[in-house]
Design a protein around this nucleic acid. Structure first.
Lengths: 218, 218
DNA sequence: CTCTGTGAAAATGTTCACAGCG
DNA sequence: CGCTGTGAACATTTTCACAGAG
């Protein structure tokens, strides 16, 4: 079965997981993989793996499994990782600097092309071969250098202003690490990551002493 | 009124959002807040806010709203943030260092008490008043200092070894930033954060919204 | 005989809409 | 009145279980 299908959100959020495992299998020269195997390496259960992959089309072979190389290609395609993404990072404090140096981005197809900060003492300094510019340069730079994704790693107070500048410059996606809700035109996609929220959620489940959900055994 | 607390996962993951807004309202000396107001400050819709809060008990006043101070207390209680959490961070590379200095943790009740790394050149150095120890010290230190949460900010390859040591030392929760699936006894809770996965998910949605090619090279 | 693909059932999560409390 | 609390409708996601392709 093929054709265009709407891939459920829950499935989309797991595709990068499968992708990572498939890359590992490629390195290990594994050419074929079963849903069961993919399940153990990703921590997702096998039925879910099959259901997820079925949304991309019927790419498996019954009695055998999935062709690693082929499936890898299909997922990269779906995620839009068959071409590079030019990224701007705003805020080069602790987190911003970590992101600039994060190998995980470059390993995929994300290329950090510009850095911005409002702190005069940081403007003009060099990080990983990039000179930090002032936030007033965001809009023109994003436009001229055709950056399509902006990462906000500033304090909450400046997040909206930064988002506005990124949007004015023409980004179509924003990854927001600032603990603040930002509003953008609906054609711009925003994803939020909040490190302290994750810890708080963890605290809830750890407090709960008794748990029922099976996690993983060893 | 609530029976006994089986708070849905989806609700739990939004409690920290409400908490943050309530803290802001407290600072602004706002004493009462409606679900509508909480909705706009958190980006969650009002019906959902009410439903979520109803799982904690009927703490609102009809015709008025919620008492900020009181609701704040109840949510902190639920999240287990009415006492301090002693945290260990393993891996003081870019991300680890950012986490050590991250104000968002301390502002809540998370206190980073120990740092570990396997890199000899980092062991013995001081970061934020803490001396970095070797990973072989994880188990005894976690045990002696009664640390209950471990944050893994190492490369994927060492994540399982680190997790084992943390578990042996007695942590009950792990926040894993390494791009790897780790397995732990079921009484230990794990949450995963993967920065590059978030960017990939964003890429999917941004790819979908193209009218013409997104700003991307090649 | 193995492992995918998928309907159908079950579980979870979201939204609606309004009764009823303050 | 205004705004919460909540059943009930709706939507999405997960899990089950097995037909059928290779």
């Amino acid at each position: 079965m093929s054709g265009f299908r709407r891939i459920p959100e829950a499935t989309v959020s797991r595709l990068p997981l499968y992708l990572r495992s498939l890359l590992e299998f490629t390195e290990q020269r594994v050419t074929t993989v079963s849903s069961e195997r993919l399940a153990t390496t990703t921590g997702v259960n096998a039925a879910k793996v099959r259901k997820d992959l079925s949304y991309l089309g019927s790419y498996g072979t019954r009695g055998v499994g999935y062709d690693v190389e082929y499936l890898l290609r299909r997922i990269q395609e779906q995620l839009g990782l068959d071409h590079d993404w030019r990224v701007a990072i705003v805020g080069v404090g602790n987190l911003g600097r970590a992101l600039v140096n994060y190998r995980g981005f470059g390993e995929r197809r994300f290329s950090v092309q510009a850095l911005f900060d409002s702190d005069m003492s940081k403007i003009g300094t060099e990080l990983n071969g990039l000179v930090v510019a002032g936030t007033e340069d965001i809009e023109p730079t994003v436009r001229e250098r055709r950056l399509s994704i902006g990462i906000i790693a500033t304090p909450a107070a400046s997040a909206q202003d930064v988002a506005d500048r990124l949007v004015d410059g023409g980004v179509t996606g924003i990854l927001n690490f600032a603990p603040a809700v930002i509003s953008v035109p609906k054609q711009v996609r925003v994803r939020k990551v909040d490190l302290s929220i994750e810890l708080q959620i963890l605290a809830f489940y750890v407090s709960g002493t008794v748990s029922d959900e099976p996690h993983a055994s060893r």
